[in-house]
Design a binder for these strands. Structure first.
Lengths: 225, 225, 225, 225
DNA sequence: GATGAATGAGCTTTCATTCAT
DNA sequence: AATGAATGAAAGCTCATTCAT
């Protein structure tokens, strides 16, 4: 991989860099999400962040750079939060279910940012797009590992794990992308429950089904008895 | 519905309007898809269409208008092509399967335009977005009707038809949105086949399963024996 | 003088030229007066006149030409109407008074066009402006002749006839230019009456005063007994 | 009054705003006066002012705004200079005469700008026009007060003060509007002298006449012995 | 003679980026 | 490090004028 993943800053103090970037990206995420990348000016981001325009160029090379890091930020939230949900869980199917639920909840907490990631990736130069795609693939891989292990363990019947994971992920993203259609018919718990019913339950073996039953009873999957 | 669906032209001859708009939209679709809406200038669209800049403004009110009609064009292709695939078919499950296959193939033939529709709807003013959403919902409804009828006829087991249709549609769209990941692992037929296996087959009753078997043998669903 | 006063037409039939030009100028006067020269498009003039854009260019060389003839039209109305008011009148002071009254009434009937003449002359090329100025001077000369003859005849005391005529003319024009301030305080008759009191009466000799008295009684000057 | 009189600037430092606006308006007044508002481009104003195009938009909202402030500037010059001429003068007729002379001299020093104000007010939106008119009325009021006080004091015979003031003001403006006709026949002092003779002297009482005689001798009114 | 679609130069306005302070 | 005024290229859009029909 090239250095497309790196963003240079003119400022040397690493702590300050961290802090300022967070401040700028927070503002950028808000505005990009609301108005889109092209309708948002750097001046507006600076104002929202409470700093001067010029300062942004001390921490980012150009406007594309701000978008790039904004998107990376969203993807990193996924990569950070999902493993947390799996921590200490050994059963691969339980991991899968927990990861799926966690994913849905992260999307719900980053609704606008998730939409932004979908709409704006293509606004980046090709090498930057590749970095984003790689990150996305990495997140998918987390789920795929759980699913593959579940199949291996006989909890899930043979299935195209790759595409099923795509469907699971799509289902999570749809909560953000189609909010206008979904949020007036379901609340988040119902939505998650339905996702499990449509995209996981049909593929479970008997053993798998009993694991899911347990998770329902434990309240891991909402909407169970 | 408001008049947000109408686009005025200064030119009176309806035949000419039809022709010129098609010419301009073809160029716009190509460029918007490739470079995005904001990176594409009206000058570039005019050049691609082989006409002068000013002429575009005789057929469209402004640049947003060009985008709007470009997107409507894509959605109309869906609304036009899918019913064709159902023509003369009476079995509701067969209709569903054929509609799904047709949808995938339309997406494949409009790859870039489909991506454009996903990315750029949010660039429109709110009332225009609503028109787009309504069109999208109408297309989904075509599928949902088939699925509901299949359930009624005992071909499909009870399931949340609304969300399952969303998943089917998403699966079709993903072929365009995630081309970078999918096209190097599957060809279109394999992809369709997998979609049927993941999103239709698990929900079939015995009778439904036999219908699907027939459709596989007839080659309606690719990848059957 | 150059040929700045001439406007060429591509059409040969003189009667048709006359007719079409009148049609176009009527539309132009209306729109130029309402919206100003630069805010009025040739397309709009054509539409208002009920003809095609191209046709205007068969009767006028360019847009400036349309303005020029529009202004000439207004000035010609002055040159045509004022002499009419003097017809058959021999007393020079009576001529002056009648001319002044007539001028005010013409301005009142051409309110918008008069404003246009004031605002837009400067939009013309220099040689065209000279033609307009010459016409304006010619109209003033009509009044100046009356005033000079009145002085000669001992009806008016010695005064700078040139500047007094300017004031008389200005007074007439002000009715159009300052309509917003004047029309809510005076009606046209009061206004004319006041003009006579301020700009004519103070300069009359005894004999002159008796002439004016007669004109008041005869109702030539409004607001008299 | 609405906020139509306000013009926003993006720049915060008030001193700089003052300075830059003056710089821009100076250039704009020059060019608008010479070529008219519509024939003058913002690019040209920027070049004349020695700055970049973009900078103009940091100090004015749009081109109309530049025109508006240009016109306000002219009117403010009147409102500022005329009272100066009256400072320390108690006799109301002397005030009137001095104000009239001052007005003529201001017009002479702002020849082109005065013409601009006449031609271009109508190019503004209605609410802006109202602001201009109100300013103009305010200036007239200065003169009207003097004239009314003179009448009260028995220096001037009964007369329609409102319309006589209009004539006085028109006389001043005519020096700019009809320069082409007037400047080759009179110099400014002669013109002022004639104005006094035509528009003030005829209306004076005996006492008033002696005041004017004094002002002539003192050289306040030019052209006296 | 008449039409009106087509042209394209030229305008206003925006905004990413720079740089003197 | 931080500011924010200044830049100027580039974009959308208009409209006087032309010309094939």
């Amino acid at each position: 991989m090239s250095d497309a993943g790196q963003v240079e800053s003119l400022v040397t103090d690493p702590k300050l860099v961290e802090e300022r970037r967070a401040q700028i990206l927070k503002a950028a995420t808000k505005l990009f999400s609301k108005q889109g990348f092209y309708r948002t000016t750097i001046q507006a981001v600076a104002k929202e962040a409470g700093i001067s325009t010029g300062l942004i160029y001390q921490y980012f090379h150009d406007k594309d750079d701000v978008l790039f890091l904004t998107l990376i930020n969203v993807l990193e939230a996924y990569e950070r939060e999902i493993p947390k949900a799996l921590d200490g869980i050994s059963d691969p199917l339980e991991q899968l279910v927990r990861a799926f639920c966690a994913y849905c909840r992260i999307v719900d907490s980053l609704l606008d940012a998730t939409v932004l990631a979908y709409r704006s990736t293509k606004s980046l130069p090709a090498d930057r797009q590749d970095v984003i795609k790689a990150r996305e693939t990495a997140t998918n891989q987390l789920l795929e590992n759980c699913l593959a292990a579940s199949a291996q363990a006989g909890l899930v019947r043979p299935v195209n794990t790759h595409l099923l994971v795509y469907q699971l992920v799509n289902f999570c993203h749809a909560w953000a992308l189609k909010q206008w259609a979904l949020r007036r018919r379901y609340d988040l718990d119902e939505y998650i429950n339905q996702g499990v019913q449509i995209l996981i339950e049909p593929f479970l073996s008997k053993t798998g089904a009993s694991v899911l039953e347990r998770l329902r009873n434990e309240g891991v999957v909402p909407g169970g008895r």
